[in-house]
Design a protein around this nucleic acid. Structure first.
Lengths: 300, 300
DNA sequence: GATAGGCGTTGCAAAAAACGCAACACCTGC
DNA sequence: GCAGGTGTTGCGTTTTTTGCAACGCCTATC
């Protein structure tokens, strides 16, 4: 929509922190961009950016306006989506920010299933950590957020939540493999493969270890999913995951998953939702429905 | 804001039902207006108006867009209001749609008090009947709605409600003037001054009369407040009002107000609120606060 | 302490967009 | 059938926006 190009300009200037840099990415002259900004400020009667020697920075008034701009831009997307849905053709783009725990196949599966039915819908999946997901929603960078063990949910509208206990993954020849449930101290005696503390699972484990006075020996610590998957692990090593992130071919790899005793490690929650106060575009809303029903059917 | 002039154009075309008529009120040529409309439809990829031989009419897509447009326009007003409030100067315009029962001085009083403190705020007060008020909110014609005995409240966000029994107004020499409470059949024996049935009070009275098998004799029936006030009534005649609409100088006019028995005529409710899902501009929100606290203090 | 390089801003001419005018094709009601 | 209403389009003109260049200001660096 051409007529709210000024809004995109403001957004870009705010992001770039400089009119000249923003002008470059917007492919127009700094002078033209500057004049548009001056026009907006004049129409508004207030300065939106404070001018610094090294660039510009958003004002308090500017921050209010920017929030308005972001909601307006994504609200227009919602309208376009609703209108497109009238003629039976579902179009649009669904942007998702999700914890790494969701990337183990579950989310990819859902996206594939959805696109099979509605090829006109494009997806953007961003892997973010617990603290960053809500921020992505606030900045309208993402429509849908899926968080395992969120830090806070002030601006988060929860649509569905799912309890996900921590499982211990091991070779099926492992001495602990026969148990129905594991205590954390049993695991602590073996070499462990752990994620960084930014992960929800690792966070739960660390907190429990501190509480129980245990020392977890990490022989490998990494965030890289590919690395952890392809790392040819020794048979005595243990790793930890939540059910939704378990590979489907666990048994084929001669591995087993044993739940940890919830008294040792509390069961974490996955929260699914969007920014409070938003009405999602049709495509995003329908995808959200699909995800929650799938979660309920498979884990609920 | 110049950049969302196209929105105002669409709104006006929808209201006028014709491009040429809209062009006239917008003070531009029909050709220019038509081209802007065509541009919007092209950018949207869908027709917004269906073309009729006698003009244009909103499409389903157009109705979705129009709702979006109205929200955007008033949301921008909210932003401007918030920004203005940053610098301590409260500006803006508060638009109120209220039942006639509120026009007896209460609302005027509140507006006057508010404007004494914030002269920069302008007011627009529309007298509307019960069924029309919610519609005015939906069309963003009004920010605040105050209804006595509403018909429905589907899109209405109630902020405060106030119970208001029906009082019978009479000369202090009237035979009923000494009573503490009146039955409806007592009143029915005298000539009555009644409002039209569009009024909440009249509606309550009529329903009760039907239920009780009474016949209310209206010697004067009118909506015009001025007429009812200035009508030199005969001493035996009765009229009906709710407390908030009683003149302050009732006693000076040698009149008294006696409540009706709530078993005969149920106590009506005044609902104060705004459109569901809206965030009001600062000026409107503060005025709403003032009104509700005043109601609570004086009648609560 | 001069100087190079970044920044926002402005004057001016060129390019682009919007506009008004007139005319066209279409339909309704008299 | 014809007058009066509608939306639409071609074209010349007007208004707006843009790009280019230059200016004044500040910071960082040598």
């Amino acid at each position: 929509m051409r007529h709210l190009l000024p809004y995109k300009y403001v957004e870009e200037i705010a992001k770039a922190g400089s009119i000249r840099k923003a002008a470059e990415t917007l492919a127009i002259t700094p002078s033209a961009l500057n004049r548009r900004l001056l026009t907006i400020e004049e129409e508004l009667g207030v300065q939106i950016f404070e001018r610094l020697p090294v660039g510009v920075r958003l004002n308090t008034a500017g921050e209010i306006l920017l929030e308005h701009i972001r909601t307006q831009l994504s609200d227009l997307e919602r309208v376009r989506s609703q209108i497109a849905d009238l003629s039976g053709q579902r179009r649009g783009s669904v942007s998702i920010a999700a914890s790494p725990e969701l990337m183990g196949g579950f989310l990819a599966n859902e996206v594939r299933d959805y696109q099979k039915e509605f090829p006109g819908v494009t997806f953007k999946v961003q892997e973010k950590f617990r603290g960053e997901i809500e921020q992505a929603l606030i900045e309208h960078e993402a429509d849908i957020g899926i968080v395992y063990e969120p830090l806070k949910l002030a601006d988060f509208q929860t649509i569905y939540n799912l309890q996900q206990p921590v499982y211990c993954i091991m070779d099926k020849t492992h001495p602990l493999a026969g148990k129905k449930q594991l205590r954390l101290y049993e695991c602590a005696e073996f070499p462990l493969i752990l994620q960084e503390t930014t992960w929800g699972v690792r966070n739960l484990l660390s907190q429990s270890a501190i509480r129980l006075g245990l020392n977890l020996r990490a022989v490998v610590q990494s965030d890289a999913r590919g690395f952890l998957i392809n790392y040819g692990r020794e048979p005595e090593q243990l790793s930890f995951e939540i059910p939704i992130n378990l590979p489907v071919d666990l048994a084929a790899k001669n591995m087993v998953a044993v739940p940890l005793n919830p008294l040792d490690v509390p069961e974490g929650f996955i929260f699914v939702g969007h920014l409070k106060g938003r009405t999602l575009p049709v495509a995003a809303a329908r995808f959200l429905e699909q995800v929650t029903t799938q979660m309920a059917n498979r884990f609920g």
